[in-house]
Design a binder for these strands. Structure first.
Lengths: 240, 240
DNA sequence: TGTTGATACAACTATAATACAAGTAGAGTT
DNA sequence: AACTCTACTTGTATTATAGTTGTATCAACA
């Protein structure tokens, strides 16, 4: 029985990824270098890499190289930034897909955080926007934003699809309070995020205020656990 | 392994900020000087600095230079370390149960963070302590600590059961970096934490350094999702 | 027929080198 | 005290280059 060359090479590379000789997030040697190492042509190396790509182990970017995938995006908790900015900083191309856009009464909202607290913060009617953030075409977060009615009235669906709320709102932002928790993914979110039922997600609830301290946005962000982790640097003062 | 230059430089600078070689509020060397030091062009240095800016670690002012973000940015995050202290503050009685205590070789460790990185940080042999933290008799965290061999040699099982590592270690602590993620609970953890199989947990990995910047502890903390939430206050950051 | 090798070219990326505008700080001058 | 000048900084843009993946073609081989 004849062994097919590119499958052997794929198996070899699979091993290097598994034992972290090629760590997640790092660039693989170029196709040319791998070709030299395995004494194979670029075509063969590519076929091997395509196999690994179909298994979700690696991704490629033209002009850059092959990257060991399933890299959690490391989100620093140092300040109020947008997801898009962080994705761009880590070299990925962000994209938004609007799932829902419309005004609704606060009382009908169901969240882990109870609806009445949203009403208290934002008023009886709010603009609700549900969207999915994509990174390199793959779902990366489901974000639901509730926005104060007077501010939301100025916004259109297309605006929200193209830019972030923080860019769009005509107020000076003051800061935010976030709670970070974990949960098992809901049925709807599993479909939106394209993850298997029963997998874990990070759930972030954020209340954003303007410079005067009044609440502008309440939002809920859901991240697949294998794609995201938050990074915090703790100064020595914090130690007890 | 191929690597992207500006990411290496960013990681290097991140280290200098973390260990206070570039103290908060201070000007960094100019882009030109950094370029000379790293033998890189201004474009590359700038890209590295932009990454750090997106993480909220540095800011820039035209005509002046790059500044390490000042303390107020980090201060609110101090709340994260006090999870155990918060328990005490909320009137519950904390308790520790030691599951395992002993030295082992780093290579045999299995963690989300790969073993080789622990070996690189702490050396080939480490003291491994696994314990369960209880609040009012109910488990609320499984904590595994890997400690540098020379420091671990001074510790006894009973000491570890009664006091925290931060109290016990005879070094001045310099700071820590934490990553927060989510996962589905493992079988062992489900038993230790007395939660149903398939439920979600928060996973925190922490690397603690001493005042000199060398790594003292690597630890992994697992919290049942329904018992724990992290609260973070985010100050505003200059939007790009 | 499918695998492999060899080659060529387009598109893209990171990096370097360079130039100039715009802002800051400080020394010197008036 | 107010102004000017200078040196240095970041912000921004352009051009160039080497190296990478994306894609296609043709030929050799089992």
């Amino acid at each position: 029985m004849r062994q097919i060359r590119y499958q052997i090479i794929a198996e070899n590379l699979r091993g290097r990824i598994a034992d972290r000789r090629y760590p997640a997030g790092q660039l693989l040697p170029s196709e040319a270098m791998l070709g030299a190492e395995f004494d194979a042509s670029r075509v063969t190396i590519r076929k091997a890499l395509e196999v690994l790509r179909s298994e979700g182990l690696v991704e490629s970017r033209q002009g850059l190289g092959w990257i060991v995938s399933s890299v959690p995006v490391r989100q620093p908790l140092a300040g109020l930034t947008t997801i898009e900015a962080q994705l761009r900083a880590s070299g990925r191309t962000p994209e938004r897909r609007i799932i829902a856009f419309g005004f609704r009464s606060t009382s009908s909202i169901e969240t882990p955080e109870n609806a009445s607290s949203i009403a208290q913060k934002l008023g009886d009617r709010v603009l609700e926007v549900i969207r999915v953030n994509l990174a390199d075409g793959k779902p990366f977060a489901r974000v639901t934003v509730w926005c104060r009615e007077d501010l939301g009235a100025e916004l259109s669906r297309s605006q929200v699809a193209e830019r972030s709320f923080y860019d769009l709102l005509p107020v000076r932002l003051g800061g935010a309070i976030q709670t970070i928790g974990a949960a098992v993914v809901s049925g709807e979110d599993a479909a939106l995020l394209e993850v298997p039922a029963g997998s874990a997600v990070l759930v972030v609830q954020r209340t954003t205020t303007d410079a005067d301290g009044s609440v502008v946005l309440v939002s809920e962000h859901v991240f697949p656990a294998h794609l995201t982790q938050f990074v915090v640097e703790l100064p020595p003062v914090a130690m007890v």
